[in-house]
Write a protein that binds this DNA or RNA. Structure first.
Lengths: 240, 240
DNA sequence: TCAAACTTTGAACCATGGTTCAAAGTCTAT
DNA sequence: ATAGACTTTGAACCATGGTTCAAAGTTTGA
């Protein structure tokens, strides 16, 4: 879960850090490794930025290298290739979202609030964190071996959201519904934001999150308590 | 609007059909032109199929040619290139959806029913018609000139949906809301279906459409009439 | 300060895939 | 049947872009 960032091919540093060779002084090589990982993260963020800006397909390794301030060839010292770059972007993001979903589900809150929390987290990780890991959505570009791993986690996340809805229904807080379908509708509405959201737009991410949550939760709320869960916010457009 | 299918580069037939040259017998050359257009449509459908199967980026001209039963080079006799192929796919689909949205809005029906109609049409054109013109969603691949045209129509469509929601609110059939955001949420939920829908899955397209409509409309319905507009369907999964 | 390990470079390699083209095949009108 | 228009072919062209690599630069440990 900690996902030390170097699981796949690691030609670079950090590999032989474990190899028990009684190093007289461990702090120094630790510093090297630490720096290496930091570098990797920087590169990853740069890549995510380019992915977001140009789209995964159009993003070239040369572009990414430039954005990360290093030579094209040097990229391959830190990552095995574009696939791995994309993979880590996606993996980090989906991990965060999964965590958030499971935490929300465990929390002692009304189902509506749980869902709200998930929605907020989802948009945060999709649009803000990790330079807006929009890459999360383009799984098709990965080679089979990497892809399946992401798909699996993605499915797990979807299950978590679905479970949250089912739970709400069971508690009587949500109206009965086709939870699988609704979960997909919610996730679709959320994921689609990456198509139209612009960082310099009128609405902040949290404003968008709140607005979407209002609508998406209302469609679920059991008729009786509809107005109880949360007073529907006024119809505004550009509150910061 | 009729979009005679050959607006861009048309090196092939149909171009000089207009050239006033007093043809002794028009029916014959008409037949040729007719056949040409039919062929173009076949190719377009084949392309759409490949786009859907492999994704726009991964779909190669050679694949498309094979799917359409002709040689790679021959494709270029009917279409200027991959861009144009993708363009026509998208253009046809968005035209249909726009039509449907405007028709629905003009119809004398409760807002909830109007929205239902749009949702059904949207999914129909996205998942079924035109071999499931999933291509509709990948605008980023087109060159600037073609892309802007599609974007424009797409925006127009979004406006139509939004207007429909606003209208519902004004009539008091929908609860007040941020119509722009809700419209995007609805469209997101709909467009996202192309990521998970499988023709051989348990639910038919109309079943999915109904299910989504139930949820998406309920989130809009004014509290008072909520149960009036449509009795919420039972929670089923696989009705044909 | 020296050797080993770690980084960096950028030019070159190479597969992929969109596109072109000249030659050949087929159909239509007379 | 024949000229001319319409189709088809598939090999070759070429730009793009991911990737490799050998050599050079820098840091670390003794």
């Amino acid at each position: 879960m900690v996902q030390s960032l170097n699981s796949g091919s690691n030609r670079g540093a950090a590999t032989r850090a474990e190899s028990g060779r009684t190093l007289p002084n461990r702090t120094a090589s630790d510093r090297v490794r630490r720096r290496g990982e930091a570098r990797r993260l920087d590169i990853l963020r740069a890549a995510a930025r380019v992915f977001r800006r140009s789209g995964v397909a159009a993003a070239g390794m040369r572009d990414i290298a430039q954005e990360a301030d290093l030579s094209p060839g040097n990229l391959y010292y830190y990552f095995a290739g574009k696939d791995e770059l994309l993979f880590f972007c996606q993996d980090r993001t989906v991990d965060r979202m999964l965590e958030a979903a499971q935490a929300a589900r465990a929390a002692k809150l009304p189902a509506a609030e749980q869902l709200r929390t998930v929605i907020r987290a989802h948009l945060h990780y999709t649009l803000e964190e990790m330079e807006g890991a929009t890459a999360h959505l383009e799984v098709d570009m990965l080679a089979e071996n990497l892809r399946s791993s992401i798909i699996e986690k993605r499915d797990k996340y979807e299950q978590a959201v679905r479970a949250l809805i089912v739970q709400g229904v069971q508690r009587g807080e949500f109206a009965p519904c086709d939870a699988a379908l609704v979960a997909r509708a919610v996730l679709g509405a959320l994921n689609w934001t990456s198509r139209w959201y612009r960082p310099d737009g009128a609405q902040s991410v949290t404003a968008i999150a709140d607005g979407l949550a209002d609508y998406l939760v209302r469609g679920l709320a059991a008729a009786a308590q509809q107005t109880l869960t949360k007073p529907a916010r006024a119809l505004s457009g550009g509150r910061k």
